[in-house]
Nucleic acid binder design. Structure first.
Length: 485
RNA sequence: CGGGGCGUAGUAUAUCGGUAGUAUGCGUGUUUUGGGAACACGAGGGCCGAGUUCGAUUCUCGGCGCCCCGACCA
């Protein structure tokens, strides 16, 4: 029998139950599925092949969406001269505490220190200023896939590591209205990606001033709820106004031959989204992947008995596999010399949406057994119907995971008007729709007393006269409060 | 950076001031295989430094490292 205390290897069978210790549960899922582990340097993360396959899916989907909206990929250097980072006052103030600096290289101290990018606004905009001369050069729409380094105190795999992977898009426009339109457009790309592909429902909205990006005019965000009721910022899109354009002299001649500053946006989605994926769908048996994010959508497990019939089972299974692949479903045949039960548990830990079991009995009866990862439901299906049925199941699972997440969020979202109820609801892990007087001071006070922050001012929040849940002052609409990752 | 905890095999743990044991994982072989197989054999261990002691993995001190809770954060 397995030792239930052996929790730390991919081979381990024991996952801490969610309800018992959410944080330990989350890390167990990552280890058990073989997604990632800590690197040798403190706070770093090694993304293992199975985890990286999820990131590759993210890249594929987002690249297609970027292309649709005329965004091109490029790459800028990782090392930023310190002077560049200091150009925009709010920006440096926001990032100074968490940047890593190269002071020594080539055997001597550097004349100018180099910052390892915490984000690329400064270095990209320095270059953009040379690229842009005329309104005809606009809009400039650039994305890069990169690693960035932010020296965070408390690392957690995927959610917060000193180095992480992301895409960061940066655009320049001829007017503030056009920039704002682009920032909103890219937020919509993220919303659709979250909900359609990752099956994570999100609330799009605007950040309060104290939560917005360092140097931004406005920050838009997609906020998701995890199974413990805490919020995760899934992706953000910033309207940078002309703050950086002024600092980096991004100017162009307009139709009237007059110099104008550019209006900019930046927007990003990081490997943190994979943390969100894990926390949204997984259960006490392991990872649960939505079919659209699964690198293996169906795993075929042959039941082998060490006799001649094995050859027939395997060859029939290969036939079946080819038919399934014919429907653009990604598969894997697991014909390792392990007992079937061990394989079943392993693919459950890895979150593969559908499992196909096929052995001598099925061969004789001309059927196969299909098992759903999300519900555990088994069904026996005639061989010729299997590929199509898997396709249906994948669609059903994708939809069902999303709906389940929406239901959880609905049940853990409270519309409240009294401070006592508010405190209790936050403590119990809920989103609270409450009135806010719009001041930084009240926001800080609420955070101090409850740990909750304003996650966003939802775009669909209706105008509604009310009183601030904390200060009692007038408020025009409700905002979302929650504790956050 | 504040508060707490812990350093024994890949992992998880036990014992003991005097050959460091167990489980699991790993390797080889045989028998197995429809929900975590069994047996046999094998490889593998005390974070670093100083002190106390005849003798330290154990006791003391220092260092280093890790984990948890806060603040920070995509």
């Amino acid at each position: 029998m397995a030792n239930p205390q052996n929790q730390s290897t991919e081979e381990s069978f024991h996952i801490t139950p969610r309800a018992e210790d959410y944080s330990a549960w989350y890390l167990d899922i990552i280890r058990a599925a073989g997604l990632a582990e800590h690197g040798p340097a403190k706070g770093t993360m090694v993304i293992k092949p199975y985890g990286y396959a999820i990131w590759e899916k993210v890249q594929t989907v987002l690249n297609a969406k970027f292309k649709e909206s005329n965004v091109e990929n490029a790459y800028f250097p990782m090392l930023i001269p310190e002077s560049l980072l200091k150009r925009e006052a709010d920006h440096i103030e926001g990032f100074a505490p968490e940047v890593a600096v190269v002071t020594h290289a080539g055997g001597k101290d550097l004349e100018e220190r180099l910052i390892i990018r915490p984000t690329s606004e400064t270095i990209m905009y320095e270059v953009f200023s040379n690229w842009i001369h005329s309104y005809r050069d606009l809009p400039l729409l650039i994305n890069q896939w990169a690693n960035v380094v932010r020296w965070e105190m408390r690392p957690r795999l995927f959610l917060r590591t000193t180095e992480f992977l992301w895409q960061e898009g940066h655009t320049v426009h001829a007017s503030e209205a056009l920039a704002d339109e682009r920032a909103r457009m890219m937020l919509e790309v993220y919303r659709d990606f979250a909900e359609t592909y990752m099956a994570i429902p999100v609330i799009p909205g605007q950040k309060s001033d104290s939560e917005k990006f360092a140097g931004a005019l406005r920050t838009y965000t997609c906020e998701a709820m995890m199974q413990d009721g805490k919020a995760l910022q899934f992706a953000t899109s910033h309207n940078l106004g002309d703050h950086f354009a002024k600092a980096f002299h991004i100017q162009f001649l307009d139709e009237n031959n007059e110099q104008q500053f550019g209006w900019q946006t930046s927007w990003g989605l990081s490997t943190r989204s994979i943390g969100g994926l894990i926390m949204t769908h997984s259960d006490d048996k392991g990872l649960v992947l939505p079919p659209k994010m699964a690198s293996i959508q169906a795993v075929l497990v042959p039941i082998l008995i060490g006799k001649d019939v094995d050859t027939d089972v395997l060859s029939k299974m290969k036939e079946l596999d080819a038919q399934i692949r014919g429907l653009s479903i990604s598969t894997k045949i697991d014909d390792r010399a392990l007992r079937p039960g061990e394989k079943f548990y392993e693919w459950e830990r890895k979150g593969v949406p559908v499992r196909v079991e096929f052995g001598p009995k099925d061969l004789a009866a001309n059927h196969a057994v299909l098992v759903r990862r999300d519900t555990g439901e088994k069904e026996t299906v005639t061989l010729s119907d299997v590929p199509e049925r898997i396709g249906q199941l994948l669609e059903t699972i994708q939809k069902s995971l999303y709906e389940r997440a929406v239901q959880l969020r609905t049940s853990k979202t409270k519309t409240l008007d009294t401070w006592d109820e508010f405190k209790q609801a936050i403590e119990e892990g809920n989103f609270v729709l409450g009135h806010w007087d719009g001041t930084r001071e009240t926001e800080a006070l609420i955070k101090e007393e409850t740990g909750a922050t304003i996650r966003c001012i939802p775009f669909d929040s209706k105008d509604e006269v009310g009183m601030c849940i904390k200060s009692g002052k007038p408020s025009k609409r409700r905002v979302i409060f929650a504790k956050a990752y």
